[in-house]
Design a protein around this nucleic acid. Structure first.
Lengths: 226, 226
DNA sequence: CGTCTCTGTGAACTGCTTGTGAAACCATTG
DNA sequence: CAATGGTTTCACAAGCAGTTCACAGAGACG
């Protein structure tokens, strides 16, 4: 069986012991670079990221994992009770979480359930909204049946917006969530990428992205009902 | 928002309290038949199934929910530590689980994440008063079902008023609370914005904002019914 | 090493938002 | 009824936020 990626390095004793007892092979890595270096031929089967000691490093690793091409590995986050509130805006960085300190039985159950449901292909590889379709596996996009030729950042920005339809994001939020938390750039960057997206979407669908003056940008229409 | 289905009936006090505090509407049902009978028009938005007291009934309900046609509702299972082993062969009956007794924060976080990954988004933060609805996430407003096209300051002013219904604010207070504490502007500024708001609310609803002569403005009815 | 595309930024341009003064209007009071 | 003080309405100008454009550095690729 493929290996699990553990953060941080060295792996917390309780975690290592639990995984060994449960029969999961694993390797610890302390950074995205280390994770790349240690990665098995056929990729990681999943990751358990401890966020209790070094939250920044932990979320950075999550982000790095999510940015990679597929195959996609399920991410289980270990957090303290105090960190629960922080998860709110980071839903896209993990697939399940477990409170630390954890019960070995609970962690095992979560791992088993996580593998079960990702093995089932529960993860949506398509993002659809109205005429827009994003294929997350092939990095392709289409609107109204017409394929879109998007660059990397354009795709990432559109993906983020399309997975949160209706919600308004400030430029700062977009910069941190799409470009990265450490990124420090001007707000014009966002404007111009929005403009390029609208141009590629074509006149007909340019209105998929609307401007909310003095606030930011919104993709699609509001969702009053849900 | 649609309602959550709770098992068993009556709902455990801790669960009911947590959901009420978090703002999730819910109904308890003790059997698949009761769940069908109580189901809202637009279906359940999800289910929280307590399996600690009556495991057979709980899993029976899960099975019944999974047998139904779409729409598919996410199922969160509450289990005791002793029951973790039972989950092994029942992966298909639930989408996430939480150990009981649970921490309210953890349950909330699991609900939010569950809704996020099943594509239902989180609950929109709404401010409602009579026919008026403000969606704080999408920066949209509607009155009597009709969308309002408000500018930034109009929206901010209306939001402030609508979150303090019945209370009278002087122009000075509004200037400092809505425009900012350091803002020094004329009192006419408030008047004109109130006027623009009333115009956009339409003749029918313009009276939502009433003038209190020599004092200021009030949103909604006074608490004395006058 | 050269070429090409992608990406970020400064600057000009445009249109809408916003604040303001003045005038009309209204309620209250003497 | 007239006087007064407060409110509504109007029109307009200044400023600001968003759009658009052109360009240069970075990075990928052959």
């Amino acid at each position: 069986m493929e290996q699990l990626l553990i953060f941080p390095d060295p792996a917390p004793a309780a975690l290592a012991q639990t995984l060994d007892l449960a029969g999961y092979p694993w390797k610890a890595a302390g950074s995205p670079e280390a994770a790349d270096r240690l990665e098995p031929e056929d990729g990681w089967s999943g990751a358990i990221i401890g966020a209790d000691e070094d939250p920044e490093g932990a979320f950075g690793l999550c982000r790095a994992l999510r940015k990679r091409d597929l195959p996609f590995e399920p991410v289980l986050l270990l957090v303290t009770a105090a960190q629960l509130a922080d998860l709110e805006l980071r839903d896209d960085l993990f697939d399940d979480f477990c409170l630390a300190p954890f019960r070995p039985r609970e962690l095992e159950a979560r791992l088993a359930h996580l593998f079960w449901r990702t093995g089932r292909g529960t993860r949506p590889e398509l993002v659809e909204y109205g005429p827009l379709v994003l294929n997350l596996e092939t990095y392709q996009a289409a609107v109204g049946g017409r394929p879109l030729d998007l660059t990397y950042m354009e795709y990432e920005l559109l993906k983020f917006l399309a997975t949160h339809p209706g919600k308004v994001f400030t430029r700062e939020t977009l910069l941190s969530r799409v470009w990265g938390y450490e990124y420090y750039g001007g707000a014009r960057t966002v404007d111009v990428h929005i403009r390029r997206l609208r141009a590629k979407l074509g006149e007909e669908h340019a209105s998929l992205i609307s401007t909310v003056r003095s606030v930011g940008y919104r993709f699609g229409q509001s969702r009053w009902g849900v």
